[in-house]
Amino acid sequence: MALTDEQIERYSRHILLKEVGSKGQKKLLEAKVVIIGAGGLGCPVGLYLAAAGVGTIGVADADVVDLSNLQRQVAHTTADLGKPKVESLKESIQAINPDVKVNTYQEFIDSSNIRQIIRDYDFVIDGTDNFAAKFLINDACVMEKKPFCHAGILRFNGQLMTYIPGQGPCYRCVFKEMPPKDAIPTCRQAGVIGAMAGVIGCLQAMEAVKFITGAGKLLVGELQTYDGLNNVFRKVKLPPCNGKCAVCGDNPTITELVDYEQPTCELKH
């Protein structure tokens, strides 16, 4: 596949980079990334991957756009209120780059469908807000041997890490088990700065682009944290999997996906 003149111009700032070049751009155009959660994190990830020319972007979210989303979910607009988020994000993506193919999954992602969905993609973005979904994504990605980027945001803080099968610890190696209901505040209860979703979502997009192009080093075996109040970025080294992880260890006890209890205060619209 040769790049067209229009593509050469559109992606010129990528092609200029030695680490990307036209080869890297072609890899982006052929890549398939699925974003689970079209919210604070999923919006910037979707917009930047679309602009980058990622050829196929999957977007999964069952929710519709709510007024309280607009403080941080930058792909949705006031005119989109009440619209399914997957549709709204799809429209924003295609407005940026009509070449991108968008697959939408307007459904609750659970143990019955997640493996099927992620199977078709090269890289998975965890843009969800709750731990049940985060553990589900982790376990499904380990089982399907899919690389993914986890992220979380709360108040003025954010974090992310990347899992590559066989190369480093998974989310469960670090966080073991689902915390009980209400044990940990979520941004729905505790609030979050809108720009935090942008910072961390953009870092997730960066991970996806690096994974696809092979440029640089991924956040494997490291948790990147950002403290927005004090302007501190840190990388915390994570020990490698010790073989005892319940899902990616040598003798996994989790071999089938289960649906964890949904957190309380799930505001169904």
Partner: peptide, 10 residues
């Protein structure tokens, strides 16, 4: 520029 170089590079 920079499309001259970009095209040559491609």
């Amino acid at each position: 520029c920079p499309n001259t170089f970009v095209k040559a590079k491609v």
